[in-house]
């Protein structure tokens, strides 16, 4: 297994230019979409089958250290979770992990059942009507296998999106959080950097300037499959209860005869 690659998105450096969103669309030939105006500059409201990098514009009253309105910008992307709900859900094996730790959907194998779409705790995976398959950020799978980094990281003019080996990026990120805290951004925090944390850590992790819920990110996302055992046991219990009832109904030789 090669060294794990990662993308570190430092939202404190994002200027909302959306070069990343455009570069992603260009490199992956994702095609035109009708704009979805959300009341702000953000377009679209959420990931789609043709938008894998999405710049979020969050207005946070009193978000700045001096109490002024802050415009929190975040270039959101598939998190390439170390424990990925989409991957565990896929019944065809189309969703796989590369040797770099990134998560990819094989477009030749996917049969479009959409279970992965419903299994991502972040709502990243989307269904494409034209191909009939599920789509999401590929971590520029073709580029990373040819010595290049993802298109979004390459295009970012402020180095808000950094690409490299995960362990090195995590160290850089930790230092950056301390610097920001020193500057007065007391809520500066990493999201998904800790491989002992939720979902085994995210291979696309973030530096946020406010708590996750401010960015509509789940504070403690979990693998949806963790419930399979309990839910199955409860179903077995129901089967026993129901089966027993039917058994008893048929064993008693028709209480009171055929008119019972």
């Amino acid at each position: 297994m090669a060294r794990t690659l990662a993308m570190f998105t430092d939202t404190s450096l994002c200027i909302g230019c959306r070069a990343c969103q455009v570069a992603c669309k260009q490199w992956n030939e994702l095609g035109l979409e009708v704009p979805e105006w959300t009341g702000g500059y953000q377009n679209h409201a959420h990931f789609t089958d043709k938008t894998f990098r999405l710049v979020r514009f969050v207005e946070e009253p009193a978000g700045k250290p001096n109490g002024d309105l802050a415009w929190l910008l975040m270039s959101d992307v598939c998190k390439h979770c170390a424990q990925a709900g989409c991957l565990e859900a896929c019944p065809t094996g189309a969703i796989y992990r590369t040797e770099y730790g990134t998560v990819n959907i094989n477009q030749d194998v996917c049969n479009g059942c959409r279970y992965c779409v419903s299994s991502c705790p972040f709502g990243v995976v989307a269904f494409n009507e034209e191909t009939g398959t599920a789509k999401k950020c590929t971590f520029c799978n073709d580029r990373i296998h040819n010595g290049l980094g993802p298109a979004c990281a390459k295009a970012c003019p402020t180095d808000s999106i950094q690409f490299g080996f995960r362990d090195e990026l995590v160290k850089k990120a930790a230092k950056r959080v301390e610097t920001l805290k020193g500057m007065g951004f007391k809520d500066a925090q990493l999201y998904g950097a800790d491989s002992g944390g939720f979902l085994g850590g995210l291979n696309a992790f973030f530096l946020l300037l406010a708590k996750p819920s401010t960015y509509n990110l789940p504070a403690d996302p979990k693998l949806p499959q963790r419930n399979v055992v309990v839910d199955s046991l409860l179903s077995i219990g129901s089967a026993l209860a129901v089966g027993l009832g039917v058994l008893l109904a048929f064993r008693t030789r028709g209480k009171g005869g055929p008119d019972a």
Binding site: E88, A89, C90, P91, T92, G93, A94, V109, C110, N111, G112, C113, R114, F127, N128, T131, G132, T133, A134, Q225, V228
Partner: peptide, 18 residues
């Protein structure tokens, strides 16, 4: 399915937790 002709792909794997 999005691609019905590929339904047999589901029989290429068996994930008992899924």
């Amino acid at each position: 399915l999005g691609v019905p002709s590929r339904f047999l792909n589901m029989l290429s794997t068996f994930k008992f937790w899924d």
